[in-house]
């Protein structure tokens, strides 16, 4: 499951360097996610990786209470979200700080910082989002 040799390698390398890098088609300019080697609609194989700021809105969410395998490093309950990144519309999976267990609202503005989730002895970089 190591993803660093896939089409999304620049995303993971970007997070490791402290930046959010996302792919855009060099032909038609469409944002492409999941990362691909070719833009289906226009056929271009030129993929540009562009830095985006870690600002987004909440697209949807769940708060997990059950201890599923692979989540051992996370305190229960924890909130996972789908975040729509500003100025590109790409949706990313991530985690949301949930100190007071206030239910997230769809459309709510959030800001991210780069963190990591430890899974089976491996730190996977991810964006941890907070409100405001």
């Amino acid at each position: 499951m190591d993803a660093n040799d896939g089409a999304d390698a620049p995303y993971w390398n970007g997070l490791a360097e402290g930046r959010l890098m996302l792919p855009r088609c060099g032909g038609c300019g469409d944002w492409l996610w999941p990362a691909v080697s070719r833009c289906g609609p226009c056929g271009s194989e030129t993929i540009e990786w562009v830095e985006r700021s870690m600002r987004a809105t909440i697209f949807s969410w769940t708060r997990t209470w059950h201890r599923f395998g692979f989540t051992e490093s996370l305190d229960l309950p924890f909130v996972s979200i789908v975040a729509t990144v500003d100025d590109c519309g790409i949706r990313l999976l991530g985690r949301l700080d949930d100190p007071d267990q206030v239910d997230p609202a769809i459309g709510e503005a959030i800001a991210g910082r780069i963190g990591a989730t430890r899974v089976e002895g491996r730190d996977i970089p991810t964006i941890i989002w907070s409100r405001g």
């Binding site: 499951m1 190591d2 993803a3 999304d8 993971w12 697209f59 949807s60 969410w61 769940t62 997990t64 059950h66 599923f68 395998g69 692979f70 989540t71 996370l74 924890f78 996972s80 979200i81 789908v82 990313l92 999976l93 991530g94 985690r95 769809i106 990591a116 989730t117 899974v119 996977i124 970089p125 991810t126």
Partner: peptide
């Protein structure tokens, strides 16, 4: 289905995958 995007978000079970869609 699992990949690092999901693992890092703590999304590791069908219940969670479907829960996010349900909330929407």
């Amino acid at each position: 289905h699992l990949n690092d995007h999901m693992l890092a978000a703590g999304i590791v079970a069908p219940a969670q995958v479907c829960a996010i869609r349900a909330n929407r």
